[in-house]
Design a protein around this nucleic acid. Structure first.
Lengths: 407, 407
DNA sequence: TCTCTAAATTTAGTGCATAAATTTAAATGA
DNA sequence: TCATTTAAATTTATGCACTAAATTTAGAGA
């Protein structure tokens, strides 16, 4: 008869196996000896865990036992490699008018990226769900990856999301659109939800300007303005997922809103249009206020247009004040401006840096993101990978379905 | 020869022993059977760990094997109790002009509280260190506890403190006054440092209005204003310990400062004094502006003084705006006003609640602290207890010195 | 004294780990 | 060709922590 053992007994194996996976991810080909050094475990344990991880599908053992150019004395070491293609994840960004999906392997390498138009409003919930389906299917096909291999999907939304992934907002749109249930039911995937600005922060720390920064604020600024905050490397959520919301912060102008850089660039640009009919700004939009975009204002300012320059100064002042207030309270090392206008916003940085001491005792470093438009979906990929890495031992890569009970 | 076993092997024992201690703290007298139920461990394991914890000094086994009124069939259960007096901790609050120390046992019960005047400035560092020594000695004596039994000391300071307990400020005072080193060297105690507002937040969640609240802001408001923030039950620090700083937040008045309720109550009260020479306010301070205190303004307002009432309205507006800004960004469930004027500040709450929606989409619940003057030292006690509880298995209660190598 | 009962203790077996001894798979040189 | 060298893999002997099942024990009551 089988005599049982505590669930807690296996804790040690879980801890050590996690340490091994962590040591192997991104380390390329490794030998047992190298793993002994990096984990502090004994050789017997290292080999035993490697065998098990190979069986579970997370590792591959290389055929040729000795790499070219390796040290050639002694018995050849067995060589293991973390199998980047053992599984995959999907990161999705649901925006106001488009939706983006990235499929990535376990190394975080993007295998495909697909963008589709997406109408958030005046469309039946079913139709929105279908778009989700279609974009995931298309991204998977383009990546050449089977749906079975997907171990987690993370979805970024422009709404407060609590720590346990509930969308908490009064907006009718989200109440009638339960992304989690839709994706989970249709595909059986594990679905994670997170606020878009929070995902931008993860992306920025993963591949952007903020690598290695543990206390970070990312301002996701387009037509709207939101922020994602990392403290000691951990995302903050607050009671109802609202940590990082910015409405009302800038109460001086009586605006009390969450409009972003693009919104004000265009709005103020239009105001400036009236002032000077012969300007570059005027030329760019053909004198038609409705045709004036934020990009035109940045362009005109770069070309030396005086009115546009004034708009940018005003923008810089507004952003400096917002960032100053946040920095006082949150004390980040670095603030990154990301989102649709990040590249253009670079022009605002010198003015902001200059004004920053006026608004905070503890001015942070400032930077703009270079990750571009896909920042939220990229962050979603990182978010999904975090989940899979943390639960690796409970998940089964598709190549080796369910080996739980095996000897 | 002894054949070794992994340090990691003992991890299981550590985890289970911690779970046992957690289950026993505050649970009073428990039997093995009860512990089996609350921890899910088997009887053999529970008993084995109890024996070990008794040996280490954390538990006591009761002599009379069956409590009066207990169920009386069967072999009497061995009865264990967490030994509240196994060790003690000290919580210290270093204020601008006084210093407070509390000695508490492992149950968190205060055994003594001592306050001494403390001059932060214009006094040699040695003298300040001596005050620390004297207050600790006096508090211990008053508590009837030996210095050996102290397993941790937490000290609250009115300066930014990083997550790892470094005081990070440009102030000369702290640079020349290394509390950690002083206390550690003179007594060998483990010393923890933490910001005073952060400790107030811990106290408020432990014994105050905020019990069970995981997303909490505590405004520590006296002459100065600072805040301690808990997110998901965890204190926030930021890059240089500045998380929760409030200077410049209230930039509308152009004040950009960190002055608190008491400061402005007195300041604005003095201004109001000029306006109306026949008021209650006037009577309270004898018409002498320098003699007017914050308490007088609160008192006069309660008595119906119109000018004082106006000052309070202005204060409420200022606090509402500060709390509103914080609440937008931090999204707490509850904001507690604590510190010297907490009791008086209670009168501000209705006005603040009314104005709150003007400053944030997500108005939190508001409350004032009832923990009084000792809130910071009380929080320091909780902080020290947290440390001891987390490291219980690495620390040795004084009654049973060093049993490491014992069988 | 005998029986009942719940708890404690003992016994047998499992999982995961280490250290030391032994074996193994190339590479090399006599 | 074949012993030698070497680093790695395996095997062997132990240890710790746990569980389940069998056994013993301490008191209460018939």
């Amino acid at each position: 008869m089988l005599i049982g053992t505590a669930p807690s007994t296996q804790l040690v194996r879980r801890v050590n196996a996690s340490a091994m996976l962590k040591a192997m991810r991104g380390a390329g080909v490794v030998t047992g000896t190298e793993l002994m050094a990096s984990t502090g475990l004994s050789r017997a344990t290292v080999i035993s865990i490697c065998d098990e991880l190979v069986r579970l599908g997370w590792l591959q053992e290389l055929e040729n036992q000795r790499g070219t150019g390796d040290y050639v004395k002694g018995r050849p070491a067995r060589r293991f490699i973390f199998d980047d293609s053992a599984a995959s994840v999907i990161g999705i960004d649901i925006g106001a008018n488009k939706i983006t999906a990235i499929v990535a392997d376990m190394a975080g390498t993007s295998l495909s990226q697909v963008t589709m138009p997406f109408r958030a409003y005046n469309v039946p919930a079913d139709e929105r769900a279908d778009v989700l389906d279609r974009i995931a299917a298309e991204a998977l096909e383009k990546a050449g990856v089977s749906a079975d291999s997907v171990l987690a999907v993370s979805v970024g939304v422009a709404a407060p999301v609590s720590r346990d992934g509930e969308v908490l907002t009064a907006q009718e749109f989200w109440k009638s659109f339960d992304v989690r249930r839709i994706v989970a039911e249709r595909h059986g995937w594990q679905v994670l939800l997170e606020n878009d600005a929070n995902l931008a922060a993860l992306a920025e720390r993963w591949q952007g300007t903020a690598q290695g920064v543990d206390n970070l604020v990312v301002m996701l600024a387009g037509d709207r303005l939101g922020s994602g905050i990392l403290e000691s490397g951990r995302l903050l959520h607050g009671q109802l997922g609202g940590f990082g919301e910015l409405g009302y912060l800038d109460h001086v102008d009586g605006v009390g809103d969450t409009y972003g850089i693009a919104h004000y660039a265009a709005l103020w640009g239009r105001e400036a249009l009236d002032d000077d009919a012969g300007s570059t700004l005027h030329a760019l939009c053909g004198g038609e206020p409705a045709a004036l975009t934020a990009e035109m204002v940045f362009k005109a300012s770069a070309d030396g247009d005086r009115a546009a320059r004034t708009v940018l100064d005003r923008l810089a002042h507004r952003m400096a004040r917002a960032i100053g207030s946040i920095s006082t309270l949150v004390n980040p090392e670095l603030v990154v401006i990301a989102g649709a206008v990040a590249a253009s916003a670079h022009a605002l940085i010198p003015a902001m840096e200059e004004q920053m001491p006026e608004f905070t005792f503890t001015p942070p470093r400032l930077a703009t993101s270079t990750l571009g438009d896909g920042i939220v979906s990229l962050g979603a990929v990182r978010h999904a990978l975090d989940y899979v890495e943390e639960h690796a031992l409970d998940l089964y890569p598709a190549s080796q379905p369910n080996q739980t009970a095996a000897g």
